[in-house]
Design a protein around this nucleic acid. Structure first.
Lengths: 342, 342
DNA sequence: TTGTATGCGTTATCAC
DNA sequence: GTGATAACGCATACAA
């Protein structure tokens, strides 16, 4: 009999239906709209499901219902733990709601980001979470063509009013500059992540300079050094700043990894922190907090971004309306790496 | 006409076939087995694909071909950057081969691990990568029932000869103990991650004790403190060790986060490292390496595990045979946190 | 080499 | 409240 289930073959709705004495349509309803089926029938179906250890074939469901309950997250990198923690929060919130997270990294290559997005669309993901507000215009065209909702994270005020969840990176840089100016610093340096394809770093640096400009100060180009987001690269960049003359008395790094790399360079060069030079980071990671001295940094809403992104994207997938723009708070965390200039 | 493509509807193989003047079967072949189709037809199909910006419907393909080209990775947590970096490597290697990575975290709850696995099977993933060699027996039953290949990572010698990629955690603990014994230490402490559901930490601790036993030494139960893998919890655990008498002169932490937490406790208590006490970690993270003094640790094959897991799982999915057991090397990295006892 | 026809397992649309 | 049936978009056996 075709309805028979040979051992070792996966049980299907058909087998459940047979065992419960109903049709596959009722099995489907029992699983997806339990309230529309008679309690007694419902129980029979559930018993059959349990007995056969039936697991619905999500792929077939996706084909028919045109939704896969998978969300794609495309992030720059996990080498720096930051995006990993946001993704972690995102994944947990999604799993709670029955969604799976499909993950990809583009390593700061926006062309690759486009390709990965295409690949995930092909795999059937329903919606996307990206990092940053700026992307290849073809990315948005692609998302539009395939009708995939998305959220941009780690920034606010995305171009064209696109949905986003994050905080004001510019304001973070601005506040940090205010702190250093108040301490009395006059000569500044910046260790920045590469800024193409990285609006976070760019905004942080821009806010920093804006605050200095308001105070009648500035950062000469020679005092802005770029480094990939690794300790080694940051260390080299800081060596260049230490060699500059006049040497800056305060250095803003656009994130904690760069800041700690800068601290390493100072240690090796015998430059004392904060006596000779102040250093600041952004993101308030354990890496920075546990240094000697502790790194003054900006506490960014790492986990909250993931939570909120999940909340928003699921709401939109399920037809509920949700605020499409969320600006979360940040705050400066003062530690021993900043002090008045020598 | 039904063959028509109304604007804004996704192009299907049908539309490509129409435009190229072939059947959908040929479109399928052109995409999946180009060598079996006439070069001229192939070109026409490719042109049509490009013109319509056709993206195959992976979900339909999965239903028909019974493989989704998705691999699930179920890891304990991303809070500690370690598994994030392995997962990163895994994802890159998978993406290169056209596979997508579906990610979930179980937060050291093996029951949850089972549920998540079931959820991902329902979503259609073809194969799995897990962390650790020990899991709920129902997990293996589930994988077997649904015929899903898997690889266990971060350990070797998995029970029942199950496929695994990792290194010998016990040997890592053993070598670290040898280092401390050679330095002349006699009184030891352990700050360990909770060991249920965590074979890595357990093996490391066991190897450590085994080496001590060979030297006629031991660790009293009072000198073994457990802590969740956070700086704060480790700090508290270390405070308990510092209060013990006689106080240990050397402490092994089963990973770098715990070790750094222990260092924080020492700093606050005014206990000097390494003069008063030696501390060691495992994993050789930046967090440990950048402390003052630097943390002596074990360089574990973080990235290599991800690379090899991808390699093995894809090979098996594609019917090639691959070595199912891989033991990667590790090495002790000496830094300033270890010295002879006072 | 190419086309025709069927079915993958589920959900949606109808009747009943 | 429930059942029969037709898709969903593609890959594949088989025929040509």
């Amino acid at each position: 009999m075709t309805g028979d289930r040979p051992d070792r073959a996966r049980a299907g709705a058909k087998h459940v239906a047979l065992l419960a004495g109903v049709s596959t349509a009722t099995v489907s309803r029992a699983l997806n709209n339990p309230e529309t089926v008679d309690p007694a029938t419902l129980q029979r179906v559930r018993d059959a499901v349990a007995k056969l250890r039936y697991v619905p074939h999500g792929v077939a469901r996706s084909l028919r219902s045109r939704r896969s309950k998978m969300v794609g997250a495309i992030v720059p990198s996990f080498d720096y733990a930051l995006y990993a923690r946001t993704t972690s929060a995102l994944q947990q919130r999604l799993a709670e709601r029955g969604y799976a997270l499909v993950l990809a990294e583009h390593h700061y290559d926006l062309e690759q980001e486009l390709q990965l997005t295409r690949q995930l669309i092909e795999h059937g993901v329903d919606a996307f979470v990206f990092v940053g507000t700026e992307h290849d215009s073809r990315l948005f065209a692609l998302l539009d063509e395939f009708g995939r909702p998305f959220v941009l994270t780690w920034g606010v005020d995305a171009p064209e009013g696109r949905p986003c969840v994050g905080f004001d990176n510019r304001a973070a840089g601005y506040e940090m500059a205010r702190h250093l100016v108040k301490l009395g610093h006059k000569r500044f340096g910046i260790v920045s992540a590469p800024i193409d394809g990285n609006d976070r770093g760019r905004e942080r640096g821009a806010g920093f300079r804006a605050a200095l400009a308001e105070a009648g100060l500035s950062v000469p180009d020679s005092h802005v050094q770029y480094a990939r987001i690794t300790l080694a690269a940051a260390e080299e960049a800081m060596q260049r700043l230490l060699a500059a003359k006049p040497r800056p008395t305060a250095v803003l790094a656009t994130n904690d990894v760069l800041a700690v790399g800068a601290m390493l360079a100072c240690r090796k060069a015998g430059v004392r922190i904060p006596d000779d030079i102040s250093i600041t980071g952004v993101d308030n990671t354990d890496l920075g907090a546990t240094q000697t001295p502790g790194l003054t940094s900006v506490r960014t809403p790492i986990v909250e971004i993931g939570d909120a992104a999940a909340e928003q994207i699921v709401a939109r997938l399920e037809g509920r309306d949700a605020p499409a723009h969320l600006a979360l708070p940040f705050e400066i965390v003062l530690r021993g790496s900043t002090a008045p200039p020598p």
